[in-house]
């Protein structure tokens, strides 16, 4: 086995695994802030796919996509965390199951 070459698919599967873990986190975590972190994990997983594909195609565009995803993630984080702060002020909890003023 050649120790200097790793198949691209390994990276992609790692990415898929991370993505799935992110989705699972989104489903099972009960604190808003960790739910949000799970989303960040998903985005990171996607980024890994992008970079792998960019490497495979020798296309810079894939990397730039990742760059933009990062910027957007930063913007989203700013807004998301601001929302989380405002919800904490209003409800004094971050538990997903207690954010239920509007249930039937």
């Amino acid at each position: 086995m050649n120790f200097d070459v790793v198949p691209s698919s390994w990276y992609l599967i790692l990415s898929a695994l991370l993505f799935s873990l992110g989705v699972i986190g989104f489903l099972i975590k009960r604190s808003l802030i960790t739910v949000f972190m799970s989303i960040e994990l998903m985005l990171n997983a996607v980024n890994l796919s992008f970079v792998t594909f960019a490497h495979d195609w020798h296309a810079v565009k894939g990397q730039i996509f990742v760059f933009f995803v990062m910027m957007v993630a930063a913007a989203e984080a700013a807004v998301g965390l601001a929302i989380i702060i405002s919800i904490f002020r209003a409800r004094a909890t971050l538990n997903v199951d207690q954010i239920d003023l509007m249930k039937l």
Binding site: R30, I33, E40, N95, D97
Partner: peptide, 26 residues
């Protein structure tokens, strides 16, 4: 990511002094 986004996260956790996650079934 590590230097800005996650700093914001920890910052908020610290600011709100978020405690352990409550174990609700969801």
């Amino acid at each position: 990511y590590a230097g800005a986004v996650m700093v914001l996260f920890t910052f908020v956790v610290m600011l709100l002094n978020v405690g352990e996650e409550e174990k609700t079934h969801g």
